[in-house]
């Protein structure tokens, strides 16, 4: 397993990122965690629908996206709000999707993220198709898709990995192995030695990385993106991490794992580790982190305010985006619904 930044905050090898960049990643991780905690609290207040927390997976999401160019595609899931936000998806639109409004699925034209996938696995094929289209059109773009350990059991994982390898599409498969697919531990998900090991069956590169180590995640993703960009084909990255929270706000992890296990996982928290590293360099202070927290709180609060301020859609909203132009039958139904 590739590691650079060890859990105690020391380095094994050289950092692939300058300190300034690590500090920006730290800011992003703290901000994303604020978004995560706020979302859970908003869901408890009935202001968001079901929410899928990513606490503990910030390094896997943010350090991998840091290796993408703005024009690269990101095709991620309902648990990857941090990744989408880092790739330019406005936070208010991420909230809006959870508020229960399809307009949250429409990132701005210059943001190359598909709306978060809710089905498990099918979206990996979309990343293959997007990368393939870029290749055929001579665009220098890569598509990175994120998914969990559970998704690797879906048939579409197989079909996507196979298509990507057969056509050499510039696709990066990033599996966040967070230990559980709702309740099922990864040991019951697969008998493969690792998820990364599956890559060799498809004839593609596979790499296992400590997903809570932002430096190593960045490093392996940068390599995979560079390989894809130069026509070297797809890569499967297994970022080994841990979902510190529940599967969703409807889940109770106490039914399938112990608090001892969770406490042990907290000691590998990517934020704690990055803080120790920066502190060791003399680049961290409590005041600095407090300032990040304050700014994050403002950012998150403003985003949910903007989302909630958007007017509740009228009946037209339900009908107006089924086709380029609604056909007569739908127009009649819209009139009926509006009566």
């Amino acid at each position: 397993m590739r590691q650079i930044l060890l859990p105690d905050g020391s380095l094994d090898g050289e950092s692939p990122l300058p300190t300034d960049h690590v500090k920006r990643l730290f800011e992003a991780m703290v901000t994303a965690r604020r978004y995560d905690h706020k979302s859970i609290s908003l869901q408890r207040q009935g202001r968001l629908a079901t929410y899928a927390p990513f606490e503990g997976q910030e390094a896997a999401q943010l350090a991998s996206v840091a290796a993408l160019a703005p024009d690269d595609w990101l095709v991620a899931t309902y648990r990857d709000a941090a990744a989408n936000w880092a790739h330019g998806y406005p936070m208010d639109l991420l909230f809006l999707g959870r508020v229960g409004d399809e307009r949250g699925g429409a990132p701005p034209e210059d943001v190359h993220c598909l709306p978060p996938s809710i089905t498990v696995g099918a979206h990996m094929l979309h990343a293959v198709g997007l990368a393939w289209a870029a290749m055929l059109k001579g665009e220098n773009r890569v598509a990175l898709t994120m998914f969990g350990d559970g998704a690797t059991s879906e048939g579409d994982f197989h079909e996507a990995m196979n298509f990507a390898a057969v056509y050499d599409t510039p696709t990066v498969f990033l599996c966040q192995n967070n230990g559980y697919a709702i309740s099922l531990p990864v040991a019951r998900q697969t008998r493969s030695e690792s998820i990364a090991a599956k890559a060799s069956a498809y004839g593609m590169a596979g790499v296992r990385v400590d997903g809570n180590d932002p430096l190593a995640v960045y490093d392996v993703t940068r390599e995979a993106v560079a390989r894809a960009r130069r026509g070297g084909g797809p890569t499967l990255i297994e970022a080994v991490t841990y979902r510190l929270g529940a599967h969703t706000t409807n889940d109770d992890p106490g039914r399938y794992r112990t608090s001892e296990e969770e406490e042990a996982a907290r000691r590998r928290d990517p934020i704690v580790r990055t803080r120790s590293y920066l502190e060791g360099l003399g680049e961290w202070s409590r005041g600095w982190e407090d300032a990040i927290e304050t700014e994050a709180e403002r950012l998150v609060d403003e985003a949910i305010e903007r989302a909630e301020a958007m007017q509740v859609p009228d009946v037209e909203h339900v009908f107006s985006a089924m086709f380029e132009t609604p056909h007569a039958g739908l127009v009649a139904q819209a009139e009926e619904a509006g009566r």
Binding site: V75, M124, G129, A133, A143, G155, F163, V166, Y167
Partner: peptide, 26 residues
């Protein structure tokens, strides 16, 4: 062969990849 493509035997793959191709401008 770039435009008339024999695929592996995988209908979800065919439709799912076609979806990505279409969203990507093909």
């Amino acid at each position: 062969a770039d435009r008339v493509v024999d695929t592996p035997v995988a209908e979800s793959g065919i439709v799912g990849a076609a979806f990505g191709l279409a969203v990507g401008g093909m």
